[in-house]
Design a protein around this nucleic acid. Sequence first.
RNA 1: GGUCACGUAGCUCAGUAGGAUAGAGCAACUGCCUUCUAAGCAGUUGGUCACAGGUUCGAAUCCUGUCGUGAUCACCA
Length: 587
Amino acid sequence: MNFIINKINKILDKILIKKFKIKKFKFFIYNNYLNNQYGDVYINLSTLYFLNSKQQQEIGYIIGKKIINKLKKYIKYYRIINNNLNIYYNNYFYLKIIKLLFKIKFNKLLISNKNRKKKILIDYLSPNSNKPLHLGHLRNIVIGNTLANIYKSLGYKVIESQIINDRGIHICKCILSYKLFFKNKKNIKIKKGDHFVGKLYIKFEKELNKEINYLIKKYNINKNEAYVKSKLLKLVNIELIKWENNNIKILSIWKKLNNLVYKGFKKTYNKLNIKFNEILYESKTYLLGKNKILENLNNIFFLNTYDKSIYYLYKNKKIIVLRKNGTSLYITQEIGTLLYRIKKHKKLFNIIYVVGNEQSDHFNIFFEIINKLKICNIKLYHYSYNTVNYLGKKIKSRRKINNIILIDELIKYLNKIIKKKFFNKKINKKKILNLSISAIKYEFLKINPKKIINFNINNILNLKGNTGIYIQYTYVRILSIVNKLNNYKLKLNNIKIILENNEKTLIKQLIDNKNIIKKTIKTNDTSILINYIYNISKIINNFYNFNKILKIKNLKIMEIRLIISKIILKFLYFNMKIINIPILKKI
RNA sequence: GGUCACGUAGCUCAGUAGGAUAGAGCAACUGCCUUCUAAGCAGUUGGUCACAGGUUCGAAUCCUGUCGUGAUCACCA
């Protein structure tokens, strides 16, 4: 949108090639948002390192003059300070941009026809069906969902996909726990299904622990030996075998418990305002992929002659892809699921796996295999993010259930805090929830996915400063002004107002929206977008405080500020939708 | 031990493609609510960018090494 930078670039190219015969050189034009002394954009002349500083300055002056000549309309003047060529926009430039921004629809800003027909599948959640969603999942959800929203805003068709791990020993533990410890209590109240099943799991683990300790004392043996002797473990394995043999009784409990969990999950998704348009279940996909491997035996995959398992050779390591008993593994399933998706969604352009960085090896192997199998031309990408630590330790979702904070619990804590803060004002439950959700999402998005999050409940409970609530608050404040002037008819022609510095800074930054979003995708870093929104919000609040609108007598100034306010609303609305932070009309 | 991340203010984090005096929030301290919504605004204090070398006109940023933290290295998913 910043047409000036394009024009400056063209001028730079011409001068360098024609006057100085420097062909393979490109200046980088920097934006300056902070320092009012320096130009709105600047070029660092030192990048012409092959010339001495006198020559650099000479070139600087020539470029400066040329730019002034060509772009008189938009540029006030240029200065060379500390070997930087600073270029200053004039008032007309800002007014022109304001007019542009006022007309433009932000949600159509990024859409290009190139992307319109392209389908992208984003696989961003794979919960186990034996426990509620927790902080570890939250990072996954928030990043995946934001990514999906960005691609949608670019015009792609996006499939948001999750695959639920609904089979295996973990769920059998819940089934057994239900049979042994809960079934006879007819008056069980189930508020939220996933929490109930989670309790079943904890109960089992507790009982197992008791038994193991008992065995260790009684027989004076070590832990591993006790595991072998454990009756509970034996029983669980029997359940698992029954499940694999399609035992009707087991299957019916299994279905019952899973459905409870899915209902619970759905409630949590609703709170977070996310929707998946593809839900896969491992019980249905775990047999896929086996045939593909057998088809390519001796060609890509090889047989272990001594035990008849099948492996793939990755960096001289044998990676087993089919067990000796012929059953599938994680990687086998991954291949199968891909085959399934290719069939189901025709013309997929791209699949993005938003999965923790601990699985980067898995994906490297997976992608290499897919490459060799020549299954498809779809671009596959592992969007990896780092772990969430709690109390100094990584949250391990697979085995342990204690030492984690559930998403629902976190929301509850926050709701309480927010309710207290609003002691005197009327505020309904839904608004409290929306505030909590925004605080939570924002907290996870604002940190670069590459970095470990050391989760501290106090950070998120402190609702000051750089938080999701701040962004919402900014929106609400501006909205209240605009609402009060709802009937005012604006005339866009012949605005001739000299803008304030904060207004200029604001406009300069607003122009960057498109680039920032593109960069967010390019670098796989949601914190870029968040920081951008936050920085602009700070300027907006400064604007709110100093550039009064309702109280100003000069109608023309009031009008231009109203226009800027409307642009701000459009901007925030658009970007809040992308990071999926709820918009509060009024607190 | 191999591989891959990360180390910036007391704490949590930004830092454009290597480029001007390294920026925010929290915490601490000053001001501002009869004010378009104070969950806000304006300001003060706070830095050997882990350490050591190298590349470069120029390094928080690139390279090498050391130290520290974490992840991973299953016929688990």
